[in-house]
Simulated scan of single mutants.
Amino acid sequence: MSPHPSPLAPHSHHAIGVMGGTFDPIHFGHLRLAEEMAEAVGLERVLFIPAGQPPHRGVPRTAAAHRLEMVRRAVAGNPRFEVDAREVQSPRPSYTVDTLTELRAELDTEQPLWLLLGADAFLDLTSWHEWRRLFDLAHIAVAARPGARLLQSDAMPSELKNEVSQRQAVGGPSGSVLLRQMTPLGISATAIRDTLARHGSVRYLLPDAVLDYIHEHQLYRYP
């Protein structure tokens, strides 16, 4: 089997979603965001791309091979979800702009590509490497909490506000921003790691298949 999923079908113009993250570990918040966005935008597939070496955060606690396998197990039952190992297999730091550039090269130029982000990640976008280029490569779908007025938020940097205000029209392969209200699941990977470290239960926060893997490999058990 090739390390990447089959080269992305060049002739279908069905939209593809990209869900990146350290996934340390993957949990129901990630999966539900991808599911609701896939439905809202009409995504044929969502590629889950675990970060290998994230440049802007601390090194993940957990080896990339474990994080990749947890994602594989988490998405196994959903025919729309796929795992893409390219960032884990790359020796370079994982920049989203590079990953989207690679995907864009594999796709038909007219294929819509959607980068799926939580609100916090989106508000931090101006700190990302070559962040303005992201809009040239993909549409961006942002999961907002119900009632959150993200675009009016003081938390949004003015540079980002300006960029978004020019990019509301949806259509074509890239360039628009869509805000969707999501079912609020206040689940965080940090809280899951902390709970596991003190031998607490994280059942119902993440798929059983992921929890079984964590126990089998004794992940997040710090002395």
Rank of each mutant, 00 (worst) to 15 (best):
V41K: 06
A138P: 07
P173C: 07
P7T: 12
A191C: 11
M70A: 00
D124M: 12
Y95M: 07
L160S: 15
L219A: 04
G200N: 06
T126F: 04
E102P: 09
E110L: 08
A121W: 01
G20S: 06
P54T: 02
R104L: 09
S2Y: 06
S127E: 15
I49L: 13
M70L: 04
A63K: 15
L123H: 03
R198Y: 07
G42K: 11
R180M: 14
A76M: 07
R133N: 14
P207W: 00
L185H: 05
H215V: 06
S201K: 10
L123Y: 02
S90I: 06
L43N: 03
Y213Q: 11
G29D: 00
D208P: 08
I187K: 05
E36A: 08
Q53H: 09
E69W: 03
N162F: 13
H27W: 09
G200T: 05
A191D: 10
A191I: 10
V75M: 07
Q218F: 10
A148C: 10
D108H: 15
H217W: 04
S94A: 11
W128F: 15
L150P: 00
H27I: 12
A34I: 01
R104A: 07
M19E: 00
S12H: 14
I192E: 00
K161L: 14
L179R: 01
S165E: 12
E36G: 05
M182I: 14
A169F: 08
R167Q: 09
F23C: 01
N162G: 15
R73V: 06
P184G: 06
L8D: 00
L137I: 11
H215F: 05
R221P: 09
D212V: 10
L185S: 06
V202G: 06
S6A: 14
L196D: 00
D154Q: 14
A105H: 11
H4C: 06
A38E: 00
A119T: 08
A38Y: 00
E106A: 12
R193F: 10
V83R: 09
Y222P: 04
A209T: 07
L134G: 01
R57C: 10
N162S: 15
H27E: 10
E36K: 05
L33H: 00
T190S: 13
L43G: 03
T101M: 05
A63P: 09
R67K: 05
R167L: 15
S6G: 14
L150S: 00
P25G: 07
R32L: 05
G200I: 04
H4V: 07
A74V: 08
H129V: 15
G171V: 14
Q168N: 12
A169W: 06
F122C: 03
H215S: 06
E159N: 09
R193D: 07
L33P: 00
G42A: 13
L211A: 10
P3M: 10
D98H: 15
V210G: 02
L150C: 04
T96H: 05
G20D: 02
I140Q: 03
Q168I: 12
Y213W: 08
E159H: 07
L115P: 01
L150G: 01
V97P: 10
G77L: 08
M156D: 00
Y95A: 04
G171C: 12
G171R: 15
P5V: 09
